Simulated assay, not measured.
Amino acid sequence: MTHAQRGYTLLEMLVVILLISIAAGLLGFGLQHGLRAAKERQVVGQMVEALRNTRARAIVSSAMQKTVFDLHRLSFQAPGRPQQHWPADMRVTLHTAEQAGAAVEFYPDGSSTGGHLLLANGTRRWRIDIGWLTGSVQSRALP
């Protein structure tokens, strides 16, 4: 009568450890990708909020206000707010009236210089539109 061997072989244990390592690596990569995408969405939201806040401030103060973008320092600033930065791997392009420079100006009647911002990081892209007549600020993800 032979006794059945109990336990696992060393090879079986190594295969299980290898599978767990691969799964952990894929999970870590997925989390990192998700966190990066969330950070990018947060930056888009912060830009929209800064522009909307600047418009509201212009209306309330009855004076022209502007959100300034520094494309070299990767930052933007709304009046009365701290300077905010976007990730170095995110490309930001600003299209607005030439006289405004690298800024979007809002006027006491709610209008603005208008224009749009294009934000891109790899295959992910967003567009923030600023209406010149109404000063409305809208963002959307691009395909």
Results as ranks from 00 to 15, higher is better:
Phe106Leu: 02
Pro87Cys: 06
Gly28Asn: 10
Arg73Leu: 12
Trp86Ile: 01
Trp126Ile: 02
Thr96Gln: 04
His33Ile: 02
Asp89Lys: 11
Asp70Leu: 09
Pro87Asn: 06
Thr96Tyr: 02
Thr96Arg: 01
Ile128Ser: 00
Lys39Thr: 11
Met13Thr: 15
Thr54Phe: 03
Met90Thr: 13
Phe106Tyr: 11
Arg36Asn: 10
Asp109His: 09
Leu117His: 05
Pro82Lys: 09
Thr113Cys: 05
Glu40Arg: 05
Gly131Trp: 00
Pro79Asp: 10
Gly101Ser: 09
Ile128Tyr: 02
Val44Asn: 03
Arg140Ser: 13
Leu18Gly: 15
Arg57Phe: 07
Gln65His: 03
Leu119Asn: 02
Tyr107Ile: 04
Gly7Pro: 03
Ala88Cys: 00
Ala24Gly: 15
Gly28Ser: 14
Gln65Trp: 00
Leu94Thr: 10
Arg81His: 13
Ser62Val: 05
Leu119Thr: 03
Ile59Phe: 08
Ala63Arg: 13
Phe106Arg: 00
Trp86Ala: 02
Pro87Gly: 07
Ile59Ala: 08
Val44Asp: 03
Gly34Arg: 12
Met47Gln: 09
Gln77Asn: 09
Asp129Trp: 08
Ala56Gln: 15
Arg140Pro: 01
Val16Thr: 15
Leu71Thr: 09
Leu117Ser: 02
Arg6Ala: 14
Leu94Met: 08
Gln32Trp: 13
Leu18Met: 15
Ser136Arg: 14
Gln5Pro: 04
His116Ser: 12
Ala24His: 08
Gly101Cys: 12
Gly25Arg: 05
Val15Glu: 02
Met47Ala: 08
Gln65Thr: 02
Phe76Val: 01
Gln5Glu: 13
Gln65Tyr: 01
Ala103Gly: 04
Ile130Pro: 00
Ser61His: 10
Glu105Ser: 10
Gly7His: 06
Met13Lys: 06
Pro143Ser: 14
Phe29Asn: 05
Ala120Glu: 15
Gln83Lys: 15
Arg124Met: 10
Gly115Asn: 05
Gly7Asp: 09
Ser21Asp: 03
Gln83Asn: 07
Val44Trp: 04
Gln99Glu: 14
Gln65Arg: 09
Thr96Val: 07
Leu133Asp: 06
Ile128Leu: 03
Met90Phe: 03
Ala102Lys: 06
Val104Tyr: 00
Phe69His: 04
Leu35Tyr: 12
Val68Pro: 00
